[in-house]
Design a protein around this nucleic acid. Structure first.
Lengths: 129, 129
DNA sequence: TCATATGTATTAATATATATAATACTTAGT
DNA sequence: ACTAAGTATTATATATATTAATACATATGA
């Protein structure tokens, strides 16, 4: 998977990494159980610090997106384990969505256009439980 | 409009303010042309610094959500002026949506449930151009 | 005219977040 | 034992966030 970072972005590097990997999992570009590059390798490829990559991996692990074992490195969590934390996801999703929809509404994007956009994006997601 | 901030949140105070005001405009809780509290007043009400509120207002102004004049303070932008900056909004919206939908997908929320959630939220938005 | 309330600007101080760097530790497979 | 993986430690530099105290500019209303 190709990961690109933008040093001039206002989004922290570790967060850019985290986001791109999450999207990679959802689109299926990163298959379940697939091995991720080592922290050292990815850091070198991107020209950034080891600990920055490590932070991204730690977050992904804590969020349940990946599993890590010392010897084999990091890999995408098996499909079955992704769903299990449950409750507060919906609340958080709802909050994020509310803000996005508020902004879209004010900027003149109506519901049908918004829903169409969602459909297009959903069509890219190959992840299957 | 009731604004509440959370000091323990990972979201900066000025951003919490900014977000809540944006949502307030979209839901219609803040009408177009409605006067916002003064920076000093809001800062005092919330028990935070004047400059933090000022930063939120500055961002909202720069984003076009509110207009400010020295004497009368800040007020919600008239409906007609909200739409005008145009182009990169959709791109930004698309990017935010992609991440949210990716996360939702992995967590097992399917498209129909997602769309239903969007509908519920859209129903709260009373803002009209 | 003139006091006043408004958003702003300035300057300083402090705390936290971000990123790099160099190095060492832990662990498990070969 | 060696090695490669994540992780921990320590230090440093920079940027961001927040508060604080104060002052400035300006347009309104008395």
């Amino acid at each position: 998977m190709v990961i690109s970072i933008h040093l001039d972005s206002d989004t922290p590097l570790y967060e850019q990494l985290r986001n791109q990997i999450v999207i990679g999992i959802a689109t299926g570009e990163l298959a379940a159980e697939e091995k991720l590059p080592t922290v050292r390798q990815l850091a070198e490829d991107l020209g950034i610090n080891t600990m920055t990559v490590n932070k991204a991996y730690s977050i992904l692990k804590q969020e349940g997106y990946i599993v890590i074992d010392r010897r084999h490195g990091a890999k995408v969590s098996p499909r079955s384990t992704q769903t299990q934390d449950g409750s507060n996801h919906t609340a958080q999703l709802e909050e994020q969505l509310q803000l996005i929809i508020a902004q879209a509404t004010i900027k003149g994007i109506d519901q049908s256009r918004f829903q169409a956009l969602c459909s297009t994006i959903f069509a890219q997601m190959k992840y299957q439980h």
